[in-house]
């Protein structure tokens, strides 16, 4: 009886001990993925900001500029691309809508970002674009990979349509979470005019034809939860200029089109931190809690099985009649 119980315990010991590495290195990379149907919005604000007033053609300080960024997973498109790519793909249709203090649109830039659901590496497929211009991303955007490492990553800059390193600058504590802080600086770069202009009847082509050019620089900051790879906070010190502006009747040749320190609105920080805290438990379950728990259980059961086996082999003392 003891020998049979020992064998059953041995089977369970091997079962749990084997589950430990299988969960971490086989199941986790296949199960952890960004869902293709995600919908997320975030509101950022620059208070105060400098904005070009197109009626006077002069830059003026305003109380607030708001940026509403929406990400929407396009399930139909992701399934289409998955068939040819042969892997799990996520297609995010994004819109950055910028609103001035008067509630009027300043600019809106649509994007399509296609990436691997498991690794978050960009997938180059037809339809990938920024503001209608086809692009070919080589770096991540919006989200870091699961189990983010303490190293620099390649990050895609939508304004310049280029990829540049985003540097790991250390570990910080943000709202009770241990996060990795990343920073990227884009030096003054000539960038295309947004397709949608705030002045009715004026197109980007018309402005470009006058010889005016748009330049931009930014310092981008992200606080990233290393378990889920999700940023819990983002800020940008962003400046845009119109150069050769005299060609459009402006009094100065270089005019600030936008300047401000853009920060996430407080309610969205609270919401994002709450969401990330709940999601990181699922990732930790597969990468830490269950593998270590199962390994300990396996070792314990093996010890118990060996102990039962040893006891079954010990000769019994003769009993007196």
């Amino acid at each position: 009886m003891r020998r049979r119980a020992g064998l059953v315990l041995l089977a369970f010991a091997v079962f749990f001990a084997a589950l430990s590495p299988l969960l971490r290195w086989y199941a986790f990379p296949r199960l952890a993925k960004v869902p293709p149907n995600q919908y997320q919005e975030v509101v950022l604000e620059a208070k105060p900001a400098t904005l070009l007033d197109y009626t006077t053609l002069k830059a003026k300080e305003v109380e607030k500029v708001t940026i509403v960024q929406t990400l929407k997973g396009n399930v139909e498109e992701s399934e289409k691309i998955e068939r040819s790519a042969g892997r799990d793909v996520v297609v995010w249709d994004a819109l950055s809508y910028i609103q001035g203090p008067d509630g009027k649109m300043v600019s809106e830039i649509p994007e399509r970002y296609i990436f691997d659901a498991h690794t978050q590496a960009p997938v180059n497929a037809t339809g990938e674009m920024v503001d209608g211009d086809p692009v070919r991303r080589t770096g991540i955007e919006f989200k870091w990979p699961f189990l983010t490492e303490k190293r620099d990553y390649e990050y895609f800059d939508a304004q310049s349509r280029t990829t540049a390193p985003i540097h790991y600058k250390g570990t910080r504590t943000f709202r009770g979470l241990e996060v990795y802080y990343f920073e990227q600086t884009i030096p003054w770069t000539k960038v295309p005019m947004p397709k949608k202009m705030p002045i009715e009847g004026v197109t980007a082509e018309q402005i470009t034809q006058t010889g005016i050019t748009r330049w931009y620089t930014t310092k981008r900051m992200f606080w990233v939860d290393p378990v889920t790879g999700a940023p819990v906070n983002g800020e940008e010190i962003h400046r845009e200029e119109l150069r050769n502006a005299k060609k459009m009747g402006m009094s100065e040749d270089t005019v600030t089109a936008f300047s401000g320190h853009v920060k996430m609105r407080e309610d969205y920080i609270v919401d994002t931190v709450g969401l990330v805290k709940s999601q990181r438990v699922l990732v930790l379950l597969l990468t830490s809690y269950l593998p270590w728990g199962f390994l300990g259980l396996g070792i314990g059961l093996l010890a118990l099985a060996l102990w039962l086996e040893a006891r079954s082999r010990t000769p019994r003392e003769p009993t007196s009649a």
Partner: peptide, 21 residues
């Protein structure tokens, strides 16, 4: 477990926002 995975779900009917929520 790895082979089963999770269902993809459907594209959200909510629009890309052009107003401040």
């Amino acid at each position: 477990i790895s082979a089963v995975g999770s269902p993809p779900g459907e594209t959200s009917p909510k629009p890309l926002l052009t107003t401040v929520p």
